[in-house]
């Protein structure tokens, strides 16, 4: 198992090297936006990875409430942390891109606001995990995770009605949408690479969580047998 994981890490690093090369050197420079558009190859794959992480978090939370096993709770904890990390990258790369292109750092439009609210929800999830005690953490966190996930489409719908400025989806949109094939190529390399980085981080964090549980269980057992050791 460990050998497979190490092989996967090596594979991910290779993929990351190729995708970085693709994004910075192979992909053509965008006509109107110039070099700054290359941030796209980091911005969108990060958003995708964050989305995947939050979805994993939701599934793991449902499984936890159903089966009550520590492993699915560890998956939930790991995916939430990694998801918040990638969501933070999205929220940082976004303004860096928006400033030269839109002329402003931030706009309260549907997708930006939804991403920010998403980030807030999962940060509150992490805060709850940090502040709840002992064996209750898992159930409380799983309940909040379900609330958060149910909330996301409602947030999106409401803010979409409120205001919109973010470009409509470039891929799979109307007639004038679509990327240059060379850009699409680089984009998919980055999408694959970021997804793999996300998986690697989640696996590492999952292992850490399970080790923490083990340490806690050992301490508890030692305390039951009398005195700290």
């Amino acid at each position: 198992m460990k050998r497979i994981f190490i092989a996967f890490v090596v594979f991910t690093l290779g993929l990351l090297a190729v995708s970085t090369y693709q994004a910075l050197f192979v992909a053509p420079t965008e006509q109107t936006m110039g070099e700054v558009q290359r941030i796209f190859y980091y911005h969108v794959p990060s958003a995708w990875t964050a989305g995947v992480c939050f979805f994993v978090n939701f599934l793991a939370s449902v499984v936890y409430l159903w089966k009550r096993n520590l492993a699915s709770d560890a998956v939930a904890a790991a995916s939430a942390e990694v998801g918040v990390t990638f969501c933070t990258i999205v929220l940082i790369t976004g303004p860096i891109w928006a400033r030269p292109v839109w002329g402003i750092w931030w706009t309260w439009d549907a997708r930006l606001t939804t991403t920010l609210v998403l980030w807030l929800i999962y940060v509150s999830y992490l805060v709850l995990r940090r502040f709840s005690a002992g064996g209750q953490t898992q159930v409380l966190a799983a309940a909040l995770a379900i609330f958060g996930f149910v909330d996301v489409p409602i947030v999106y719908m409401s803010i979409r009605w409120f205001r919109t400025q973010h470009p409509s989806p470039v891929m799979g949109g109307g007639e004038n949408s679509g990327l240059d094939p060379a850009m699409l190529h680089a984009f998919f390399w980055n999408l694959a690479a970021f997804t793999c980085v996300g998986i690697v981080l989640m696996v590492v964090r999952y292992r850490l969580q399970m080790l923490e549980e083990e340490v806690e269980a050992t301490h508890a057992a030692a305390a039951l047998q009398g005195g700290p050791r």
């Binding site: 929800i121 509150s124 709850l128 502040f131 609330f147 909330d151 803010i159």
Partner: peptide, 15 residues
């Protein structure tokens, strides 16, 4: 803890 977890989820309702 209550406002920390209640406010983010309530954002669409508040809006």
């Amino acid at each position: 803890m209550l406002p920390l977890i209640l406010f983010p989820i309530s954002i669409p309702a508040l809006l």
